[in-house]
Design a protein around this nucleic acid. Structure first.
Lengths: 136, 136
DNA sequence: CCGGTTTTGGTATTGAACATAGCAATTCCC
DNA sequence: GGGAATTGCTATGTTCAATACCAAAACCGG
């Protein structure tokens, strides 16, 4: 039952990302947040007054996909929009958004710790720089 | 424009896998193969006479998703099915499947080489074991 | 300060990968 | 022999991401 494709970094990357996303989605679901919701919330907090297109540019989420995502977060009362000019809108966390974000941060931190713990320590510190070399 | 989330291994894993899949899909599209098509072809060649449920078990593709995938490969003339008993079917490569697989192998090999080349060499050899620790 | 270009926010739609629920037939195994 | 598990499959839903297109506002060179 051993998988002969597991020697290929590309395949391993796909499988690892998949397993990771599945587990993270499960841990976030009690908060009623999808993975991309959580990443947007975290970014908003670190980049106050960013417009939706700015957020999309940083996280690589297309405008078309950002619109329904933000609509969902707004409907959930986690963010509000404030006009910057007659075209752009600043995305801000509401009080509810702040507290949801705090829960999110706790979950994510624990998750990242658990993730790293699974990696043999001689490889551990190499993962982040290796991954970042693949997309940044 | 720097992305503050890039310090998190989970986020970096998602972004790296995403970038990788996008590029691989582009390289495979001249062959009219999706990524999962290619992985199934490669597995069939290494595990002759495997049934569809066996392949699914190894690659972690659910029965429900394997059915249309194999139907596509069969319609493209790349595989054929041969009864093992009155319930199970062996999945075999046709001649066209063999030659398509050869092209696939060339593309994948080059792709994996390019992937690794992007990683600073001091991290390179750690990627595969680190990733495999996350799902195997 | 005018007018073409770019940016912004949005809708509608599509594709790929993956998941669950259910079904009929066959095989497994006590 | 018969209940339990396995196999192949349909139908359907979810999540993420992409394309095409739109109107309005902002930007910027002449």
């Amino acid at each position: 039952m051993t998988d002969p494709l597991a020697r290929q970094p590309g395949y391993a990357l796909r499988r690892a990302a998949n397993a990771m996303m599945g587990e993270l989605a499960a841990r976030l679901s009690p908060l009623d947040l999808r993975i991309s919701d959580a990443s947007v919330l975290m970014l908003i907090a670190r980049r106050k007054d960013a417009s939706s297109s700015e957020i999309g540019r940083i996280l690589d989420i297309k405008r078309a996909n950002m619109a329904p995502l933000l609509a969902r977060l707004e409907a959930a009362g986690l963010i509000r929009r404030e006009p910057i000019d007659r075209k752009s809108m600043a995305i801000l966390l509401t009080a509810a958004g702040e507290s949801r974000l705090a829960e999110t941060d706790r979950i994510i931190e624990q998750f990242e710790r658990d993730l790293l713990a699974r990696i043999p320590e001689e490889h551990r510190d190499h993962l982040l720089p290796a991954l970042n070399a693949l997309w940044r």
